[in-house]
Amino acid sequence: MNLFRLGGDLLHVFSIFVLTLKIKTSKNVAGISLRTQQLYLLVFCTRYLDLLFTNPFRSGLTMYNTVFKILFIASSAYIVYLMRKKYKQTYSVKDDTFRVEFLIVPACLAGTLFHYRNTFFEIVWAFSIYMESVAIIPQLYLLQKTGEVENLTSHYIACLGGYRALYLLNWVWRFFTEPRYRHWIEWIAGTIQTALYADFFYYYFLNKTKGQKLKLP
């Protein structure tokens, strides 16, 4: 455990909190991609299959991981519920149209071909890493289509990008401090995932310095 990772995890939780706050305060889910949220739910459910066989009391880190894993699955399931049931009428159904098959199928292929070990859990785990790296795309697509988003929605995406950036720093840190740290799958997928936010960040900061709502050209 290092400060970059701890900061990344906390920022990840905070981003989900910001999103829930946006939905609860505005009582609408306009501008939020249900497709991205469902992909995240899929990512967490496939990534954290080990919850089924890991003893959470094994160590302090196991307990820490277990709490966060349950939190991520539960919170993303809750957001999907809010979007599909409670605030269904406000959902941007006409604009949230990115074809997720174009993301899921390649992630399945990549997981099947490139993994650490040839076991079911390892293949599913690798799939979840590849899936997460591109899961934000429907959200960015929706953002581009609508052109303007509410502040809290843009903060949510910014927090997610920040969490990714901290995880990259965490890997750099671990690379130099742990001699046997060679996690190439995380490196590749994580770099792609973080890079996807670059364009968004450019406009986010441009609009923040002007003190305006996020508007895309």
């Binding site: 990534r47 066989f53 094994r58 991981n65």
Partner: peptide
């Protein structure tokens, strides 16, 4: 090797 040794992150 334990599953957790390889996957100790979130």
């Amino acid at each position: 090797m334990l599953y957790e040794t390889l996957h100790d992150e979130l």
